[in-house]
Amino acid sequence: MNNNILELKNAHVRYGNIEALKGVDLHIAEAEIVALIGANGAGKSTLLKSIVGLEPLNEGEVTYNSEILNGVYPERDKKNISTPTDVIVKKGISLVPEGRGIFPEMTVKENLEMGAFLIKDKKLIEQRIEEKYEMFEILKDRRKQLAGSLSGGEQQMLAIARALMNSPKLLLLDEPALGLAPIIIQNIFQIITRINKESGVTILLVEQNARMALKISDRGYVLETGNIVMVDKSSNLLENPKVKAAYLGE
């Protein structure tokens, strides 16, 4: 019995001749915050997409609570069998996509309602929306505005709040700090920590802002051109000379 909520084994993703993931092994234990750092084009977003079934694996497998979500079965002519994204989401995984992916022509409240699409109980939806308004006060003020009119930071908060609407067990965040002002980044990272500590949500955080990501995470992976080149406790990675030179600008 292992307590890994998520595991990637030998995950490969190819786009034509380009191999975006070249055999990635990664595991996340329950209630952990794991950071995945790496440069642009290292394959970070592809990795997250493969977990939610938006990017089929060409080799290897993704398992969630020991159940295969996305993988290749040798007995079926190596055909990829990927669980549809909406079914994966139902199992308790939420992804906050890169660039936030809010629905720009829907109001803030409607965006939150979409996050609760799988919930049928209207009272529960209202209750969760109220919880999110408490967590992100600015969203309450903006609830009737079109999401496309929000500032970048507000959109990011909306994207996180929306991903939390169906109370996921595993939250995947793709570059939540991208393009935001430092003070807002700090705020967002505080919220991520809170989500993990208060609700016990397991978090996989993909970030280019390596310092912040490593500060709030338990463990970290370094991804370079489709390969995991380092795995360690985040506190060790912060002291690692190679990481310092390549990702922390020291």
């Binding site: 909406d86 992916g101 829907m106 309602e113 699409f117």
Partner: peptide, 24 residues
Amino acid sequence: TRLGKAMRATSQNQAVASLMGINV
């Protein structure tokens, strides 16, 4: 309605709609 909103969401961004648990 819930389904009508899901239609609007799908028309704005299919991948993200599927991330909401919507069967596109």
